[in-house]
């Protein structure tokens, strides 16, 4: 065994030319003494050549490679899981909504509520086929159960295209209501504004407020002040009140302050004036909602004697300051 160890050390040291002269002659002696030793020497030599060849593999890491593969496999699994979970979530939510409605229906009422965030617009079709376009920052509630009446409550602006089916359709807003059978009309009733407006495009509607009924004819617009009892009826170009449903706003000789009020909701920004006189400038033109906001302010600067400053805020609405040029 001792000899064995010595022989191995002599053979391997020889591979690296690390034997002294004495050691080298000792190795030669041992190799010549036994055929077995020589055979061992030969096989260690070929082993050595092979070891040197494995140098090619030293640049690779099996662990690193596997970690990358595993990460990818897990990522794909997670993606697939999320994909399935997405549908599962939809099913669960619709199931919950379903049971919610069912429970309410059993009690006799079931109010659905649609809220449109600022800067967004939505279009929906009610059970009876009536189409409703809801403008930015509006909320619509409707009773999905009632059989002999169709009742909706509006906060904000909506355009209604009511399907005629024999039962009255009522829109409640603020302290008034519009009663119709089947027509197209627009209602503006934002809480933060002191007036509401109903504009009739076609058909016939009744405005019911404080137990007085007022009839409106096509192209007529009624303006209701929150504070006063009196109401005003004007003939208007109804295009403006329809066009927003198509993503555009047509202004004909409109005061800038009224234009900016719309823009504030539409683009979810805050618009301020540095001088009162600027508010009363008149603006004519069509604004397309799908156009970026900066294009619109550029147009203002081009058409009106104003200077516009845009402040981007991270945690609150962006601010637009309009001043005299």
């Amino acid at each position: 065994m001792k000899n064995d160890k010595q022989l191995w050390e002599l053979i391997t040291s020889n591979l690296y030319r690390e034997n002294s002269n004495d050691e080298q002659s000792e190795l030669d002696k041992q190799l010549q003494s036994k055929k077995r030793n020589e055979k061992l020497n030969d096989s260690v030599h070929s082993l050595h050549v092979d070891i040197l060849a494995t140098n090619d593999l030293r640049g690779f890491s099996k662990e690193k490679s596997w970690n990358n593969i595993r990460k990818e496999v897990l990522r794909k699994r997670m993606l697939r899981f999320l994909n399935v979970a997405k549908y599962a979530a939809i099913v669960i939510v619709s199931f919950l909504l379903g049971t919610l409605f069912l429970q309410k229906a059993e009690k006799g009422t079931s109010i659905a509520e649609i809220r449109v965030p600022l800067g967004q617009m939505t279009e929906l079709t009610l059970d009876d086929g009536t189409q409703v376009w809801l403008n930015s920052g509006s909320t619509l509630k409707y009773d999905t159960k009632s059989d002999n009446e169709r009742l909706v409550t509006l906060e904000g602006e909506a355009f209604f295209d009511v399907t005629k089916n024999g039962t009255p359709f009522k829109v409640f807003f603020k302290d008034a209501a519009v009663e119709v059978l089947g027509t197209r009309f627009n209602v503006i009733a934002y809480h933060e504004e002191p007036i509401s407006q109903v504009t009739l495009v076609e058909g016939k509607v009744n405005i019911n407020r404080r137990s007085t009924l007022t009839k409106l004819h096509p192209s007529e617009q009624i303006t209701i002040s929150d504070k006063h009892k009196n109401m005003r009826i004007d003939k208007v170009n109804t295009d403006f009140y329809v066009s927003w449903t198509e993503g555009k706003m047509v202004f004909e000789e409109e005061r800038l302050v009224n234009v900016t009020k719309k823009l504030e909701r539409w683009y979810n920004v805050e618009i301020r004036f540095t001088e009162e006189s600027v508010k009363n400038l008149y603006f004519c033109g069509t604004i397309l909602k799908n156009k970026p906001f900066d294009q619109i302010i550029n147009a203002f600067e081009l058409l009106l004697p104003v200077k516009i400053q845009y402040k981007h805020n991270l945690h609150s609405k962006d601010q637009v300051i309009i001043s005299k040029r």
Binding site: E9, T12, S13, Y16, L47
Partner: peptide, 27 residues
């Protein structure tokens, strides 16, 4: 062997033994 011994803080003889053992193990 000398360079290895220095780097690993071991004797040259240990290097020799370790190399021999490594080859033996592989074989």
């Amino acid at each position: 062997y000398n360079e290895i011994a220095e780097k690993m803080h071991i004797s040259k003889n240990t290097v020799k033994t370790q190399i021999a053992r490594a080859y033996r193990f592989l074989k």
